[in-house]
Design a protein around this nucleic acid. Structure first.
Length: 579
RNA sequence: GUGCCCGUAGCUCAAUUGGAUAGAGCGUCUGACUACGGAUCAGAAGGCUGGGGGUUCGAGUCCUCCCGGGCACGCCA
């Protein structure tokens, strides 16, 4: 419908004297239903070019449109309003047809093939395995997964990828932390292995020390690193090692065994948390593989060949100062070890070579200043960086007892994503992260979490869905059923038409939400759909009406159910038949 | 100090990307069930969109300068 109006408008506008070449009329929904269904501001925009009064231009356009008799007569009226808007109103028959199409499409309603054949990569979470996922990672995970869903709904073939680094200093510290806790575990005189001579000898030489904040010092084994990870999960991993290996690891030459065990345990934990949220990664990409394949070295060589790398103080620098940044950037430290940026560049290069049409990165606000370096390098290497889209989300601030909780994985000062899910459930967790735009700061009061979850908007959506299921079932029990005879043209009540008008927006909402990579648009829109249904429900009955009207309304309820179900699906939320 | 994000109703947030009278939820107040699910619905109150200037037919949205908050500015990742 939009296209047909647009085509007609283009023909008329093209015929006006003074229209600039390439002028495209913009069409949008009317601000208010009483104004009409579709509006264009083209007369306002043309006023400058044509040097004429906008309302006069509008009148001219409307006159010519009427002589064309556009859109199979489905335009009920065309009016000029305000400073020169042109408002189109569709016929009721058009809305009935649109509902019919919705019902025919069913669970595919809202899907489009706009990007069929194209491949997209969504990289998200990408937390290094140093601890459990926190609430902050939750926002990343849910955003990424939902954006991936949205891309699938617009036709993309999507790969969900998790990028991680299991080497380097932080992993060594992690392993050393586990080793420290392992020593502590065996130092406990109540431990089952306490009688072993080797353990007893170890206990004799066991000493502790204090680390951490001055006002909250923690006593740990002397083998525990000063900048070690203090979370209880470290102790649990250590206990498991004590169980599996007994005292055999006391003389371990380095921390690699501990690192390896920690990595495995933590990844298992991360994956199970993601699974609880309904998230399944297609691939875990190890940064280390980029070293093994030589991709990191090759990237450095290629950047050198482009003349953007130089040496100073024994380190390799990239001339980012000539590429729109204030300072230059270190790619390889004087120790010969690359900074994380270089493998990151190699990684994105790898994505290009795998042939993705669109590559999406979900990053927290802390990456805001660093990811442009990667894009700069890629541009230098000749890649089209328009294919990369970076979604930056602001951090979640957590409130507990009226005060903000400062998060630090190392200091074990955090709220895990699992705890949040335990508290409010998966649907509330997901919806909570999706209902606001990514770039707005999000405040979450843990004390109110459970209480607030009772009135969380997600229940409003699910309730509407469950109620529709119940109504349809009841209607079938009294002998009504949907069939090809259903007369949608009986739906003329204001609440019925308002509901249809809303439902039919759904495919467009999906398209726009996907294009903007902003899931909150769908989340907030779904509420308006559920509201439109509630209004309909309160003013129009099904059971008790004559069969033709009752079945027509059943069809409308069914259509609403489809839209709610599909919308909830995209957001990764359950659409329960009963609650 | 420099760069990026943000500032909208008492609170938490929207606003179709520059459109018409800035909208929802929570909270507050007033109403509605002999009813297919009341986890509902109808209505009210609540706003100088942080402040000043600018751009134009038109600004919460764009440019600029202040004020306030967040994040980042390392040969850490």
């Amino acid at each position: 419908m939009k296209r047909c109006v647009h085509d007609a408008l283009s023909r008329v506008i093209g015929g006006l004297e003074g229209t600039p070449a390439g002028f495209e009329a913009e069409l949008m929904a009317c601000a208010r239903p009483e104004q009409g269904d579709l509006a264009t501001n083209c007369a306002l925009q043309l006023a400058r070019h044509l040097r004429r009064n906008p309302r006069e231009i509008a009148a001219d356009i409307v006159g010519k449109l009427q002589s064309l008799r556009i859109c199979d007569g489905h335009i009920a009226s065309v009016e000029i309003a305000g400073p020169g808007f042109i408002n189109f109103r569709f016929s009721t028959a058009y809305w009935h047809q649109a509902l019919d199409a919705l019902l025919a499409a069913g669970e595919g309603y809202g899907r489009s093939a706009a990007h069929a054949g194209a491949r997209a990569l969504v990289e998200f979470v990408s937390a290094n395995p140093t601890g459990p996922l926190t609430v902050g990672h939750g926002r990343n995970a849910v955003l990424g997964d939902t954006i991936a869903n949205l891309l699938e709904w617009t036709g993309f073939q999507v790969t969900r990828e998790y990028y991680f680094n299991d080497a380097g200093r932080q992993m060594r510290v992690l392993g050393a932390s586990v080793r420290g806790r392992y020593h502590e575990t065996l130092a406990d005189p109540d431990h089952v292995l306490a009688h072993m001579p080797k353990v007893a000898a170890h206990r004799a030489g066991y000493t502790t020390k204090c680390i951490g904040d001055a006002d909250a010092p923690v006593t740990v084994a002397s083998a525990f690193p000063d900048d070690g990870y203090l979370g209880t999960y470290i102790t649990e991993i250590a206990a498991q090692l004590a169980e599996a290996h007994g005292a055999d690891l006391l003389e371990a030459a380095d921390e690699r065994t501990f690192t390896q065990a920690a990595k495995q345990a933590i990844f298992a934990d991360i994956e199970s948390t993601l699974e609880r949220l309904g998230i399944a990664m297609d691939r875990f990409f190890n940064e280390g593989s980029l070293y093994e394949s030589g991709a990191v070295r090759q990237t450095l060589r290629d950047l050198c060949a482009k003349g953007v790398v130089y040496e100073r103080d024994g380190a390799q620098w990239m001339k980012t100062s000539t590429l729109g940044k204030e300072k230059d950037t270190v790619l390889v430290k004087s120790t010969g070890e690359p900074t994380y940026r270089l493998p990151d560049m190699a990684y994105h290069r790898d994505k290009y070579e795998r042939g993705y049409d669109v590559m999406i990165d979900i990053f927290g606000a802390d990456h805001i200043a660093t990811y442009p370096d990667v894009l700069r390098a890629l541009r230098v290497l000749g890649y089209d960086t328009d294919r990369i889209r970076v979604v930056i989300y602001q951090f979640v601030s957590l409130m507990r007892a009226g005060a903000e909780v400062k998060m630090s994985t190392r200091m074990a000062n955090y709220v895990t994503l699992d705890e949040l899910i335990d508290d409010v459930g998966t649907d509330v967790t997901r919806y909570f992260f999706l209902m606001r735009s990514a770039q707005s700061h999000l405040e979450f009061d843990l004390d109110l979490a459970r209480e607030a979850s009772d009135k969380n908007p997600v229940f409003y959506l699910q309730y509407a869905h469950a109620r529709i299921c119940s109504i349809l079932e009841k209607a079938r029990e009294v002998g009504f059923s949907l069939d090809s005879e259903t007369r949608l043209d009986l739906l003329i009540h204001e609440a019925e038409l308002a509901l249809i008008r809303t439902l039919v927006e759904f495919p467009d909402v999906i398209t726009r939400t996907a294009a903007a990579l902003e899931p909150h648009r769908l989340a907030t829109w779904l509420r308006t759909a559920a509201e439109a249904f509630s209004r309909f429900y309160h003013s129009c009955r099904i059971i008790g009406e004559e069969r033709p009207l009752a079945t027509a309304r059943m069809a409308l309820a069914q259509g609403t159910r489809t839209v709610l179900k599909n919308g909830l699906d995209v957001l990764g939320l359950r659409a329960p038949d009963r609650m």
